[in-house]
């Protein structure tokens, strides 16, 4: 087990190195930070001085190795826009984003799993049909639009919930729901079809023949067999939320998390900060996947990690 963990960590490190290279190259292609940071009337000398200060006048390879060397020392550079360490900014914002992501995924799982299971108990029944219809409907709704709709209805019209910010639990509800709903719909479909398959399995018949109660057969025997595919999708959805959807939803709801700051970093061409954000998310994704792999092994003893 220890050896496998080490191997997996090594793989993760390779992924992170790959991401580092891609991010480094791409951020250098989206624009010249000097144009943004300096006023239009800046002289050529001023520009050159500024470039030199950022180290952008050095050969690209030197810049890259310098960047990697800093990373190795947990130095992600100083934000050009805010003039302070990028890591500091990220660590301020990250808890809010993780809070939002975990809330969203928790809501999605807590709704989708029971819903999918109940639908699977009677394939083609009325509950099943409603579930499929609802999730297909909700699946077709774009997230930003859903967020705006929520704001219009619950914040503007009804005035029940705040439209933006992150001051209280009330502020969490709308963005978390907006993130949860598309995930929920995909999860429901997978839970449903997986559970239908499992309920037809022979071991379910055995459990019935043993006289086990339905709740135990479905909730324990079949559920554990559903767990691996359902977890796979959940992990995938979590990563999509963390590394993508939050940018949209945090913007819509002015949720001051990592997604919002990422968008602002792009707008201000703060390539150091942007680089740092992408790097941190990549690390989180790699660690998260490692954890999921280990949980797989706990759920299903047949899974070989190597």
């Amino acid at each position: 087990m220890g050896r496998i963990l080490l191997l997996r960590s090594w793989h993760g490190l390779i992924v992170i190195m790959g991401v580092t290279i891609v991010v480094f190259v791409v951020t250098r292609m989206i624009g010249d930070p000097v144009d943004i940071m300096l006023p239009l009337e800046a002289t050529a000398e001023q520009r050159a001085a500024f470039e030199h200060q950022l180290g952008l006048d050095r050969p690209i390879l030197v810049q890259f190795f310098d960047y990697v060397w800093s990373l190795a020392q947990f130095d992600l550079g100083d934000s050009l826009w805010q003039n302070r360490p990028a890591l500091e900014i990220i660590l301020e914002r990250l808890p809010l984003t993780l809070y939002l992501c975990f809330s969203a995924i928790a809501v999605a799982v807590l709704v989708a799993v029971p819903m999918g299971v109940i639908a699977a108990l009677k394939p083609g029944g009325i509950i099943d049909k409603i579930t499929v219809l609802l999730s297909l409907g909700a699946l077709s709704v774009p997230q930003f639009w859903l967020g705006l709709l929520f704001i219009m209805v619950f914040a503007v019209q009804l005035g029940w919930l705040p439209a933006g910010g992150a001051a209280s639990f009330k502020h969490l509800i709308l963005p978390a729901l907006t993130l949860a709903i598309p995930t929920m719909t995909r999860l429901v479909m997978v839970v449903r079809s997986q559970m239908m398959d499992e309920l037809n399995a022979q071991y379910v018949k055995t459990a019935e023949a043993k006289g086990m109660p339905l709740f135990r057969i479905v909730g324990l025997h079949a559920m554990r067999n559903c767990a691996v595919p359902v977890m796979t999708l959940t992990a995938w959805e979590f990563i999509r939320i963390l590394s993508g959807y939050t940018v949209v939803v945090e913007t819509v709801f002015a949720w001051p998390g990592l997604g919002l700051i990422a968008l602002q970093a792009i707008e201000r061409q703060d390539l150091v900060l942007l680089q740092a954000i992408v790097f941190v998310i990549a690390v989180i994704v790699v660690v998260f996947n490692l954890a999921v792999d280990i949980i797989y092994k706990v759920i299903d003893p047949r899974i070989k990690l190597d």
Binding site: K210, G211, M212, H221, R224, N225, D300
Partner: peptide
């Protein structure tokens, strides 16, 4: 069912739950 009348099936591989030990599957009964 499972007490006075019990049943065994053709293929014990698929008839046993793959994710529980044999011990767990007996003791639950």
């Amino acid at each position: 069912r499972g007490r006075e009348m019990a049943m065994i099936f053709q293929d014990a591989m698929t008839s046993l739950n793959p994710l529980f030990t044999c011990g767990q599957q007996i003791t639950e009964v």
